[in-house]
């Protein structure tokens, strides 16, 4: 996991997909690809009322990203200072090994450029001191950007554990 993470408050999320659209708009992602996605889980009746969870699925920026290991050209890179995993598009040849490798479905195929691209936590915005577009645009402020200064390593580990339930390793 990277130094950062995006916390999603299930109580606040309404599944409106503003995160997806803000992300696509900010990153000019063509139709067909998505850096993040809301996956509704439910409805499932709890205490008499059907409840639903909207699971926000961006890239989780693994500690040991398989996409990086699988990349034959070094295009998929993990930034050492903060662990953000992103694609150097000048190196990508479009072999999609990263897409095959990633258990999360994070790397995306850009059919217009013939290259892979993916969630990089809007690192250009991060580097300017802003937050990722999904977080900034979230209709109900359900998404929260957690930077290293705001989070203890314990908290991050807890988050990582939650995320990786059922995942082989991450």
């Amino acid at each position: 996991m990277s130094e950062y993470y995006i916390y999603q408050d299930q109580k606040r999320c309404i599944g409106c997909r503003a995160c997806e659209v803000h992300c696509k708009t900010k990153n000019d992602v063509p139709v067909g690809a998505s850096f993040c996605k809301i996956i509704p889980v439910g409805p499932k009746v709890q205490d008499g009322i059907p409840r639903i969870k909207f699971i926000f699925m961006p890239c989780f920026h693994c500690e040991t990203p398989w996409c990086v290991s699988a990349c034959p050209t070094g295009a998929m890179q993990r930034r050492t200072e903060d662990g953000i995993v992103s694609v150097d598009k000048s190196l990508c040849i479009g072999c999609k090994a990263c897409i095959t490798a990633c258990p999360w479905g994070s790397p995306q195929w850009n059919k217009e450029t013939g290259r892979v691209f993916k969630c990089d936590y809007c690192k250009d915005r991060i580097d300017e001191g802003l937050e990722p577009a999904c977080v900034t645009g979230c209709t109900t402020a359900a998404l929260k950007w957690v930077s290293p200064s705001e989070s203890s390593s314990l908290k991050r580990e807890k988050f990582a554990k939650k995320i990786t339930q059922g995942a082989p390793t991450s």
Binding site: C16, A18, V21, H22, T25, T136, G137, C138, T139
Partner: peptide
């Protein structure tokens, strides 16, 4: 805040 619903965000496209 800068929050805006998905339709608003799709104004650019």
């Amino acid at each position: 805040g800068r929050f805006l619903c998905p339709r608003g965000a799709a104004g650019k496209v």
